[in-house]
Amino acid sequence: MPGWLASGLVYASGLALTSGGITFLYITTRTFNFAHASMATFGFYVVYTFVALKGGNPYIYFPLAFLFGSLLGIIVYFILNRPLLKRKANEITLMMSTLGYDLILLSLIQMYCDYLTHTYKLYPRRVTMSVYDIQIGGMNASTYFAPITAVLIITALSLFLTRTKFGIAMRATIENTPLSEASGINSDKVYMTSWVIGGGMASLGGAVLAMATTGSPVLGMNLIANMFAGAILGGLYSIYGGLFGGFVVGLAEYAIVYWLAESVGTWVLGYRLAIPLLIMVVTLLFFPRGLAGIQWRRIFKSLSSKKGEAS
């Protein structure tokens, strides 16, 4: 497997998890969560702290990243999102509140980094997590574990939403909150669970992303545009679309940058961020409902009928 594809798969998997989390929170609570940036960074620091202090490979701490991220999600919900939802705040207010929260979280992460340096003599402001990685078949294990983690989360989420009573209740609330409440479903519990899942996905996504990029307090902040590009490409009204969109944006970013660097020169690496932004602009201009909003079945049908006519 070419090097760019191996790293690209890890990066795309991390982006899929974070973009999926953004979409999930948006369709359940109408909140565009900018705090996703620092929640992802938080996940990286959970894994880094355990690896640096307790040892072992990063993957054994991935469940902890999800768990701690979920707890962070609960805190955001109760302190910030719930009071605003109760006051029927509009989407702009909800979004701006998460931006404020993101800045607070970023400051706390900066303080935590100083704490690690002063107390444990660690240097957490520029971490290459891949040095802690293990090798499988001559490749970094993250090449396998990152996509497996993303697929496991998608499968678990899918089973939860289609096979459990509460999961179906979440889908019901997403679609029609007044009717679900009139049916006895507590939307408050649904929103809280969304933050548990969304927070967990952000944090786990951050831990995965750190396996392909440099871990720093601004890890999430540097990638927030990419995360949103993934969510928008997937279609903001489809959970699976968000996950898929994040994956496509991540992989496209690596593939295009690799191709441009080969053909134009390595100086283009500095303009890497233009790729997800371009994807976001094209999506919003030409198919604003994203990949999930395109009627693929109709397209395939017309393509196959044209093929039939030609033959």
């Binding site: 179906i168 889908r171 019901a172 679609e175 029609n176 007044p178 009717l179 679900s180 009139a182």
Partner: peptide, 10 residues
């Protein structure tokens, strides 16, 4: 309800 009386996606 008058409108949205069922969960269309379920």
């Amino acid at each position: 309800p008058q409108l949205g009386s069922v969960f269309a996606n379920l």
